[in-house]
Simulated scan of single mutants.
Amino acid sequence: MKAFSNKELAKAQLQAEFLRALANSTRFKILLLLRGGECSASALVEATGLTHAGVAQHMTLMARWGIVTKRRTRTNTFYDSTLAEPDILDHATTPLPKRQNR
């Protein structure tokens, strides 16, 4: 078996970090909320029970990874998902079929 190159290892590390960003249950819930379209920070606070600072912390991390976009008005901040394929979230919430014994 061929060993991974340094470039391949670095890419795998980056991909793992991206998946960890998605794997947090609070961030995943927020992404499910954003499937319906853009939401204000206040709406996310109400839906998640987090503080404004808590929502902002999660959204900053997801924005850094390009998972969400942020739009500001004079009085509100709005977030939207950048996931091109929102159905990918369904795959994560669908139980895997039981593995058949060989």
Rank of each mutant, 00 (worst) to 15 (best):
A41V: 13
T48A: 03
D90E: 09
K2H: 10
K98R: 15
T69M: 02
T77H: 03
L32D: 08
D87G: 09
M1F: 06
F78N: 00
K2G: 06
K11P: 00
Q100N: 02
Q15D: 13
G36E: 15
A23H: 11
E8G: 07
G66V: 00
N76L: 06
A3G: 11
N101A: 09
T60P: 00
W65A: 05
V45A: 04
L31R: 10
R102K: 05
T48G: 05
N6Q: 12
L96W: 02
S5M: 01
G37T: 12
I67L: 13
R71P: 00
L19M: 13
R64Y: 10
T75S: 04
K11V: 02
N6F: 13
G66A: 01
N6L: 15
L19V: 11
R35E: 15
K7H: 11
T69E: 10
G49I: 05
A16T: 12
G49L: 09
A53V: 06
T93D: 06
Q15S: 14
F18R: 14
A16M: 14
A12Y: 05
Q57I: 04
R71E: 07
T75I: 00
S42E: 15
G37Q: 11
S40R: 06
T51S: 15
M59K: 01
V45G: 01
S81G: 01
E38K: 09
E46Q: 10
E38A: 12
S40D: 06
I30T: 11
L34N: 08
A10I: 06
R99D: 03
R74Y: 11
C39E: 12
R72A: 12
